[in-house]
Design a protein around this nucleic acid. Structure first.
Lengths: 232, 232
DNA sequence: CAGTGGTCTAGACCACGGA
DNA sequence: CCGTGGTCTAGACCACTGC
């Protein structure tokens, strides 16, 4: 089990500080030669390290040492910019899709919408320290927030909801599942299809219990850790 | 990208009902032949399906179609037996380790213990429908629950806490992270080291805010989905 | 354009599971 | 004891990245 040995050696080098977070590893061919093995075996080791969250890959760009994950507290409404800043990182957001459309089946179900409802469909890539780590798909009831898309969509949407539409969320439910990226989302995150991912589905309801927004957050699995607290 | 094709074909067969949950797939060699490819490429496809949670493997036993995951609601104290039952599954528990020892560093930190504190150290394998899906490591303050290990440790511990020690938990915090199994835990779950896993770290405090129990739950990543709700 | 990662082939040996 | 999954070798071609 050579690949275990390779894995441990790389972990060791990271812990000893020889390989800092964000560093790119040498090419697979060079690594394979260093460890006197073939690329297939080397990639086995790298995949293991990826699954552990120690390294990650950028599609066709190579392998990199992972950063410390962002800590998310699900008990308080979060926005990635403020959370990142509080943890000494910087975040930015790219809007990929923003359109107002008839609700698709998925959105209609999750929001319990009447037929032919219009929703805003927004997709954004979120970067932390310049690295794309999360892809979010938003479905927002259009009747409550008619002119939403005229605003700057790259910021915290809840600010727009509050300031412009006097819309506040009273309740939020999360679904969390461990999966992997499909092709489209992987591409948007410069990841590879099949890379491990964490899916956080957020459902926001207003004071009347009406679901106003649903967000599907696809995280690179090593970029995030969740905290939840419950009292009884 | 042949392995995408293979992957899709298998997904198709599952959705069409040809492959029921729990079924074992044919051997890798046979599958490789069916798809006119090599085992390496076939395993690439299978690994992708494993990452997606569609199939899972038992070490040296083969590949199986995944069942529907257990839904866990973190907002209410759960026990796997009752949760499984409510979802039409049956659960059982094997005690692997049960001893009273001096707290190790990990336990002492998480529980804010004074030096030389004694704790109960319990490790259990949890099975759903006969399949090992979760490995739990418990650290329990021994001073609050002196005779804990004399009881039947394979049941819901909180019942023993409540009935025997009049100990109730008032607060629970969770940490959730996506990782992979290390060798020991993989073995206990008949999984392979490096297989994707979900780690849920539970910390239980009593009414006085004293941490009485810490549990590290290592789940097969496709065996569980989390639900959380928060009000503001 | 050189080098890289992504993909694939056609084998091989071993240790373990299950009959 | 047979077949299986786990591991490994030594190559190859292609499309893309980054210079």
């Amino acid at each position: 089990m050579q690949y275990i040995k390779i894995k441990d050696t790389i972990v060791e080098q990271i812990q000893s500080g020889l390989l800092a977070a964000g560093t790119k590893l040498p090419s697979e061919r060079k690594l394979a030669e260093s460890f006197k093995t073939t690329r297939v075996t080397l990639r086995e080791a790298l995949s293991l390290l990826e699954a552990e969250g120690v390294i990650f890959r950028e599609d066709r760009r190579g392998w990199f040492i992972a950063e410390r994950p962002i800590q998310l507290d699900l008990m308080s409404a979060y926005h990635i910019h403020t959370v990142a800043q509080a943890q000494g990182k910087s975040a930015s957001t790219d809007v990929v899709v923003s359109k107002t459309v008839m609700a698709n089946k998925e959105a209609a179900e999750k929001m319990a919408l009447p037929p032919f409802s219009e929703i805003h469909h927004i997709e954004r890539t979120h970067l932390v320290d310049g690295r794309p780590v999360m892809y979010a798909i938003h479905y927002v009831r259009a009747d409550s927030t008619p002119s939403l898309l005229d605003h700057d969509i790259s910021q915290d949407l809840s600010v727009i909801f509050a300031n412009t539409f006097h819309l506040r969320f009273a309740q939020c439910t999360y679904g969390v599942a461990s999966t992997s990226f499909d092709k489209e989302i992987a591409q948007a995150l410069r990841a590879t299809a099949g890379a491990p991912a964490l899916l956080i589905a957020r459902t926001h309801a207003d004071i009347d219990g009406v679901v106003q927004e649903v967000v599907l957050e696809h995280w690179r699995h090593n970029a995030v850790a969740l905290n939840v607290s419950a009292g009884f």
